[in-house]
Nucleic acid binder design. Sequence first.
DNA 1: TGTACATCAGTGAACGCGCGTTCACTGATGTAC
DNA 2: TGTACATCAGTGAACGCGCGTTCACTGATGTAC
Lengths: 191, 191
Amino acid sequence: MRVSKAQAQANREHIVETASVVFRERGFDGVGVADLMAAAGFTHGGFYKHFGSKADLMAEASANSLAQSLASAEALSVKDFIDVYVSRDHRDGRATGCTMAALCGDAARQSDDLKSAFAEGIERTLQTLGEKYPTGPDAAPGEARVKMIDLLARAVGAIMLSRACPDDSALADEILAVCHAQMTASLSVQS
Amino acid sequence: MRVSKAQAQANREHIVETASVVFRERGFDGVGVADLMAAAGFTHGGFYKHFGSKADLMAEASANSLAQSLASAEALSVKDFIDVYVSRDHRDGRATGCTMAALCGDAARQSDDLKSAFAEGIERTLQTLGEKYPTGPDAAPGEARVKMIDLLARAVGAIMLSRACPDDSALADEILAVCHAQMTASLSVQS
DNA sequence: TGTACATCAGTGAACGCGCGTTCACTGATGTAC
DNA sequence: TGTACATCAGTGAACGCGCGTTCACTGATGTAC
């Protein structure tokens, strides 16, 4: 049952897309190659026609979803980014949310290949949002980047701590509400 | 080869202790029951004389290491906490570092039992360090807690993002340095 | 205090199962003439 | 354009392996008399 080159390429992209969602939902170790292929609508045997190993797909799926999140962040102001990111919807929507928040704990234990994908995702996020960071007129050069690094760490930390609490826990919501307020407030304080 | 009650209890504690280190190093899914028991100096068969399941040990080991980190934080000022926490030593010493930073990504996908251990660890950390947070003389009640929640999210986020970057990456060090400076600076700004 | 027996922490073989990966096979697609 | 053949994406059985868990067994500890 050979398939056209265009179809094969589309299928490959569909597998990467599916993997980027399922990995975020269940973690790299929480999904098998067979699960992944079934979720994409295929049988597991064809996997190695597209990828050298599961680890290769992990890196590619991460790069894919990091790039995707970045694309959606491009349309946002820093304030809007905070609203979207530090929210209950984002916390509860791991599968379609930020890859950093969903997988950076796992990434820390993976190959440098995978970590490079994360570093690039982080760097691009810093650049994209850093350009829009509202610094004062007499801000030092690099001020926006510094503020943006701090902001990203706060955002990722807030989501991850909130997700580590039991569902419907008051603490989980408190963390989000407090961090959202503090981050928003820090935006209007120019240094 | 029965062993005295006191010895059995000591052995159990040793297994929990070992597990809390190895889980932080390799993640919950990265270590098997047999590995764990071998690391503690036993064979795997005896595991179920002490624990109902691997998941039970995961929760107990997490609670144990969270309590331990808390104990060492009790001696620190908030400024010292930032120095110790947001550091390269901490980033590179996952096995003996903060359990939140090492495992909160994994915890998000586990049972509410495990998450409860994390929520309690977070709550106690907030209380212990919150009491020492240097707010101004006319600070609103609850101000210290709010600041401490934000500070903890920043600290955890900074370590986790830094760990997700390749070893010896400039970005990994930049994230730590920037967040350390920003957090320290925010300590001296009273609201 | 000494003896006889029950308990149970720890051992190591074994269990079924799911994992990542390989492979012979199929048949539509792509290519050479 | 039509025919013959090579290619290769996708299938599904099979591989060895390590996982969490169970179990019969051992022998020192704990207990009853």
